[in-house]
């Protein structure tokens, strides 16, 4: 057991592997971070960096049988989810931990009415009667600001727009008033104006319910706007971790700097050449044990063959201390 803290979730040296044709690949390689109660933690990185696999490992929704948690701990309110039984996990997932995925259409069953799907959550987790569950579901749709909820309950998912579907998914995730919400790219498939609505809604519900959120995204703008703390991942590892304010003002790892400088903002001079990170995000099978960002940059010096350490270089600011990618001031 871990000592009592204010953290609702502590991920400690989590290792998740996938069995593939090219051998066992560590999609998540000793990832550690904490989620303080009531706060939003963003996990950011490019495709294939392991951010979604990290989230899915927490709630044990890994593709089976290929995905396996090989090591580490995930303490949720003091319980280690890695070692919890399947029935315990089923109770927690959708109960105390809500999950939202990127593609709302994939999370909804196309052949059942919205009402039945939202009510099912109440029926399953809270053991409400059919009638009470239906009423609770209607109330939930109202909470996520779906206009005319009684009418929408009778609709099928394809009747709704992308933004409305995502609201339904949020309603289902919030149904049991979870203390932790995991949102995996919740606004990536949406237009900017709808994204703003959904982020606003999530922020409001979060402060009303006092819950914590893990927000997974590739969009640094969304991170800057909504997160208290940020975890930057690259090729299965955390390269930097800090509060959002600190990370944007004072990025320390070369990869974080590269990411921040490669996006045009409204203040970037027009048609100026942007900073780029050379190379591509390689397949995990192509990385060796050493610093993975050095491998992308084509640096092969001796120091990069060892796995760099990960340390707290200033209060609450952690960075992978590869001598090439991180130079202390």
């Amino acid at each position: 057991m871990i000592p009592e803290t204010d953290n609702i979730l502590e991920v400690d040296k989590l290792i998740t592997s996938f069995e593939t044709d090219r051998g066992l690949l560590r999609a998540v390689d000793q990832v550690s971070f904490t989620v303080p109660a009531g706060k939003t933690v963003g996990i950011v990185g490019e495709s294939g960096c392991g951010k979604s696999v990290t989230a899915m490992s927490i709630v044990r929704l890994l593709p089976q049988p290929a995905g396996k948690i090989l090591g580490g701990h995930v303490y949720f309110k003091g319980r280690d989810l890695v070692r919890a039984s399947d029935s315990e996990i089923r109770k927690i997932r959708g109960g105390e931990i809500g999950v939202i995925f990127q593609e709302p259409m994939a999370a909804l069953n196309p052949v059942h009415r919205i009402g039945r799907q939202v009510a099912e959550v109440f029926h399953m987790h809270k053991k409400l009667s059919k009638k009470d569950a239906w009423d609770a579901a209607t109330e939930m749709l109202e909470l996520v600001r779906i206009p005319a909820p009684e009418k929408r309950m009778m609709d099928y998912p394809h009747h709704l727009s992308g933004g409305m579907r995502q609201r339904v998914v949020i309603a289902m995730a919030m149904a049991c008033r979870p203390s932790l919400l995991i949102a995996d790219e919740p606004t990536t498939a949406l237009d900017v104006t709808v994204q703003a609505q959904i982020l606003d809604l999530m922020g409001r519900i979060q402060s009303e319910m006092g819950m914590s959120t893990i927000l997974i995204t590739h969009d640094l703008g969304v991170i800057a706007e909504t997160c208290d703390d940020v975890v930057v991942m690259y090729a299965g590892r955390v390269v930097e971790r800090a509060s959002a304010e600190e990370l944007f003002a004072n990025p320390l790892h070369a990869y974080t700097k590269g990411l921040l400088h490669s996006i045009p903002t409204l203040d970037t001079p027009s048609k100026s050449l942007l900073n780029t990170i050379p190379g591509i995000v390689a397949s995990l099978a192509d990385y060796s044990h050493g610093c993975r960002f050095c491998q992308r940059m084509g640096r092969t010096t001796a120091v990069t063959r060892e796995r760099p350490g990960f340390s707290e270089v200033s209060p609450n600011h952690w960075v992978e201390t590869c001598p090439e990618c991180y130079q202390p001031a």
Partner: peptide, 20 residues
């Protein structure tokens, strides 16, 4: 106004549109 700002210290006033 819906574009997220890239500075956590700047909280822009958003014009939230209703509907789709």
């Amino acid at each position: 106004s819906a574009i997220p700002s890239h500075d956590p210290k700047v909280k822009r006033k958003k014009i939230l549109l209703e509907g789709d």
